[in-house]
Write a protein that binds this DNA or RNA. Structure first.
Lengths: 214, 214
DNA sequence: GAAGCCGTCTGACATTTGTCATGCCGAGTG
DNA sequence: CACTCGGCATGACAAATGTCAGACGGCTTC
């Protein structure tokens, strides 16, 4: 659907890749498949966020392919760190569950590409070339979701309190953790729920999670 | 750690595999890697539960490698169907999020292998051979989790009501859906929460989900 | 077959939660 | 400056929820 420049890669300079994903099966398989492409070479692999950062520092890849959810630190925070330390390294995020909010945060962190794991390896290779060339690529379906979901209507406090409520804690506990009066907490929860069109705070938490707003 | 019989495969009869996973990236990569093994051949791929079933009927594989979470029908229900229709086909479940309850349900459905996606492709190939030989293989760590989590202490009704409560619906709605009095619903939720050591039903839902009991 | 246990179900009561009216403060606007 | 608007905060009231004691039937156990 999207046009990807299939320009000939510089023969003497293959694109150097960092692969980070906690699922060994996927990471290894991906490394093998991408390695088959003449113009791509996997120079480092990592299974956690911190490991990915360390590997990036050590090997200075051209493109970092990061899973969104990893132990330690997620793809977006790794991308933020990389942005500062290695400006020449482009970041591409790959994810199983594409939530609209994540895409937004990722782009804000300077990520150049965002794709679901439902793409084929062939397609991923093309996208890696696109990103390496300095262009952006965002999966059309995820982009559409993000646009239709829009921005979070929640204020800072509302989001904070909603997050504390995420594990089903009673209001009294939330109030203590947020250093607020119980009444205020109820108010925020109530307003957040009505903004999200939810019946109660628990449904609100579910919706906010779905849209990546917490 | 676990001994896997490395017996020579029958040269003329490679193990015929069905691969089912909704993530194209992983499925394709896996197919490529497993195809490199001399004694394994991927004869069919599927992206959804129903598709996996149809493919299995058409190609009659020796081993079906199924993702636990797929659109349409999950790996366990596919396994149950296969068990009846193709008794000669052994089922191996692969998953990202290993919940204790899932493992138990899978084994009850006649699944012969259960592994997380953190294993290497090499290791997966060995496990496929183990399963094809008629043996079982369960990831030691997942097995330990399952044992420590134990069986669900919830009665049938408690689990049912808890499931209805999963999306944060008010009690009145749950009562209607379950054809019970609101008072009874509250009672079940309360008893389920206390059995799980949760403060309220929402925390109970979280815990039950974590342990794979709903 | 009587006793005891477990799962199912119900209504009454106390607690928690959601809703509302209200006040305070800082930013932007005329 | 005066005004308005939106975010932050609170307490009072009404509704939903959690807790409790108890009734009924099926099952095992002695």
């Amino acid at each position: 659907m999207t046009s990807v420049p299939s320009g000939a890669p510089a023969p003497g300079a293959p694109v150097r890749l960092l692969l980070a994903d906690d699922e060994h099966l996927i990471r290894g398989a991906l490394a093998a498949l991408l390695g088959l492409e003449d113009d791509l070479v996997v120079v480092a692999e990592a299974a956690t966020g911190p490991e990915a950062l360390a590997m990036a520092r050590a090997h200075v890849p051209d493109v970092a392919v990061l899973d969104l959810q990893m132990p330690g630190a997620d793809g977006v925070s790794v991308a933020t760190s990389l942005r500062g330390e290695l400006p020449g390294c482009q970041v591409l995020i790959v994810t199983s569950h594409g939530r609209p909010g994540h895409l937004k945060r990722a782009l804000a962190a300077g990520v150049r590409g965002f794709v679901p794991k439902t793409v084929s390896a062939q397609r991923l290779a093309e996208i890696i070339r696109t990103v390496h060339a300095g262009n952006r690529y965002v999966d059309p379906e995820l982009a559409a979701d993000a646009i239709s979901a829009g921005d979070s209507p929640l204020t800072a406090r509302e989001a904070e309190v909603l997050e504390f409520a995420a594990d089903g804690a009673p209001v009294a506990e939330i109030a203590e953790r947020a250093a607020l009066s119980p009444g205020t907490v109820r108010n925020y929860l109530s307003s957040a729920a009505s903004k999200l069109g939810a019946e109660n705070r628990h449904a609100a938490v579910r919706l906010a999670r779905q849209r990546g707003w917490v």
